[in-house]
């Protein structure tokens, strides 16, 4: 009996943990952390952002109703605090993405794979960013240079590819955590694969886990 009970509670705890880790707030937090720690822009979480926005709106209405109905101010402020936190997560998530777009605009636009990770408004934003930056660079510098040297992305007319585009540094170390199951990583400089159990934290090159971020591995 006693052992049964013990097993039951672990299973329950696991279930509870899984349930908690799949709430939208938790998912948003994970997406936000990944985005914050990754050197390049990640896939935009369309559905998640949509749900979060709706839930925040609903919360705002609820808090307003509470305020009007003269509910206990302490309770209201607890709800408000929860709301503020969710809002911060959402805003910060979108903000970090925009700042990455600002930083790597030329790189993102010429790379189809990265461009496809953007949301529609972000795509509009990156195009405007580039237009504005090109105009500014053109007016201030490029128009004063000889004809063959007027490209914003190439050093001169004889450059065969873009050689003046700021790129994110992917060869950088990040702290990461295996999110759901056993993950095996092939490291560049070692013959033995790095094996990570669930919740194990490792410090590895971003390039190695690039494709697993948000799937098997989350950044911390």
């Amino acid at each position: 009996m006693a052992t049964d009970f013990g097993e039951g509670s672990t299973a329950e705890a696991n279930e509870y943990e899984t349930l908690m880790s799949t709430t939208d707030v938790q998912l948003l937090k994970t997406a936000w952390r990944n985005e914050k720690a990754a050197p390049e822009i990640l896939q935009f979480q369309v559905q998640l952002v949509k749900r979060a926005t709706e839930q925040i709106q609903l919360m705002e209405e609820t808090v307003e109703e509470f305020e009007e109905s003269g509910m206990d101010p302490l309770t209201v402020s607890l709800y408000q605090m929860d709301l503020d936190r969710a809002q911060f997560l959402l805003r910060s998530y979108l903000r970090i993405r925009l700042q990455k777009v600002e930083k790597y605009m030329f790189y993102i636009r010429k790379n189809d794979n990265l461009r496809n990770r953007l949301s529609e408004p972000e795509r509009v934003f990156v195009n405007r960013c580039i237009d504005d930056m090109e105009k500014h660079l053109g007016d201030t510098v490029l128009s004063k240079l000889p004809d063959n040297y007027q490209s914003a992305r190439r050093q001169s007319i004889i450059s065969e590819e873009d050689d003046m585009v700021p790129e994110p540094q992917l060869e950088t170390f990040v702290a990461c955590k295996s999110s759901n199951r056993f993950v095996s990583l092939r490291l560049v400089d070692s013959e033995r694969p790095l094996e990570m159990e669930r919740h194990d934290v490792s410090f590895v090159l971003y390039k190695v886990i690039e494709e697993k971020v948000g799937v098997d591995i989350d950044l911390v």
């Binding site: 979108l94 903000r95 504005d132």
Partner: peptide, 13 residues
């Protein structure tokens, strides 16, 4: 450009 993005997502960032 930033403002136009913010008004599209209807959030003040």
């Amino acid at each position: 450009a930033l403002e136009s993005y913010m008004s599209k997502v209807d959030l003040d960032l």
